[in-house]
């Protein structure tokens, strides 16, 4: 065989191989083409067997041609391989199309009860002002629940708290979280900033705004100069945190035996924004809590010298706050535990 023939064979082979590479339908076929042309027993190798019959001078030349052909076919195979891979990926992805409009596969998640969630929200606000949580017993003694709060036995103010009594001498179900004030004052020393959440009980018929079991959060701050102005400032912060910074507040006289002066604290109606509606009795205001400066008698029962220290206390109904925050109109929903209601607080 001479150089020309061999060169021609290689060139034909190049043409055939390139056609074959282009024609390979998938990776396996391409591999087959690769093996059949470029493999150890492939066509080029076959042709190059004839190299021994060439002149020594022609051998490098035919080698160069062979390398060129090999390189061209290799290159074409790489290109074809990439094309095939891309096509394959594309078709796989196309086959994997899902209906993206089907619902997601949910992991079941529960929800916190709105009362617990509201207590946490209240705690969050006052916690940032340095108030720390304390807790007292629900079965309270009469002395702490009433007498130490400046509500003597047979005092008409007792009518404000319809009481459930239990079969333990001198004990009752606490009617408010206020006895916690006494406990905190006896356990700690000023400066005091305490928050007392908890369950309370009253002899009260159930309706849309009353319950015989309910939750309160009490606050107490005592120090040398703590004033009514401090109370007002903090309550404003609280109201703005829960009901929006633009919401007006109102500070007016209230009455509690354990505070003097006593305060009722209103926010602009969350339903009508102050315009007046049935929800706020057309006054434009909703009372959210009671408060006042701790009565000197209460400070003394707490073991604190009212000449040196003064402070404020406040108490709010958690359900009331939760109702205003979440647009709930019937307090009974909180203890009915209808999951259709509770799951709205996820």
């Amino acid at each position: 065989m001479d150089l020309e023939t061999m060169t021609a064979q290689l060139e034909r082979l190049r043409a055939d191989a390139l056609v074959a590479v282009e024609g390979a339908a998938d990776a396996a076929a391409l591999e087959q083409v690769h093996v059949s042309f470029l493999g150890r027993k492939g066509a080029i190798t076959e042709i190059l067997r004839g190299i021994a019959g060439l002149d020594a001078a022609d051998r490098p030349r035919i080698g160069a041609v062979a390398n060129d052909v090999r390189g061209a076919v290799e290159a074409a195979a790489v290109v074809r391989d990439e094309a095939l891979r891309a096509a394959e990926l594309e078709s796989r992805l196309a086959a994997e199309t899902v209906d993206v409009t089907t619902p997601g596969r949910r992991v079941a998640r529960g929800s916190r009860h709105p009362i617990a969630e509201t207590v946490a929200a209240i705690d969050e606000v006052f916690g940032r002002f340095g108030f720390v949580v304390h807790e007292g017993p629900e079965i309270e003694d009469d002395v702490t629940n009433f007498q130490m709060l400046n509500i003597p036995a047979d005092h008409p103010a007792r009518d404000l708290w319809a009481t459930l009594y239990v079969d333990i001498d001198d004990h009752l179900l606490r009617t408010h979280t206020s006895p916690g004030q006494i406990r905190v004052m006896r356990e700690t020393r000023p400066p005091i900033r305490a928050l007392l959440p908890g369950r309370c009980f009253r002899y009260e018929a159930v309706d849309a705004s009353h319950a015989f079991e309910f939750f309160q959060v009490e606050g107490l701050m005592v120090d040398e100069g703590t004033s009514l102005a401090d109370l007002r400032g903090l309550l404003d912060e609280f109201a703005h945190a829960l009901f929006g910074a633009a919401r007006a507040t109102r500070f007016r006289p209230g009455y509690y035996p354990f505070t003097e002066p006593s305060v009722a604290f209103d926010v602009e109606c969350v339903v009508c924004d102050g315009g007046g509606c049935p929800a706020c009795g057309r006054t434009g205001w909703m009372t959210i809590l009671g408060a006042g400066m701790v009565h000197p008698v209460v400070l003394r029962y707490g073991g604190i010298d009212p000449e040196r220290y003064q402070g404020f206390a406040f108490g709010m109904g958690v359900e009331r706050i939760a109702m205003l925050r979440h647009g709930v109109h019937d307090l009974r929903l909180f203890m009915e535990n209808d999951l259709r209601f509770l799951e709205q607080f996820r």
């Binding site: 700690t188 400066p191 703590t226 401090d230 400032g233 109102r250 003097e260 002066p261 009565h295």
Partner: peptide, 26 residues
Amino acid sequence: ADIIEEIARVRGYETVPARRPETQMP
């Protein structure tokens, strides 16, 4: 304290300034 409340009440609680406490942290 009863006298103090009376003063605040007649003057109007609305006139009590609102401020944040400047006291020692517990």
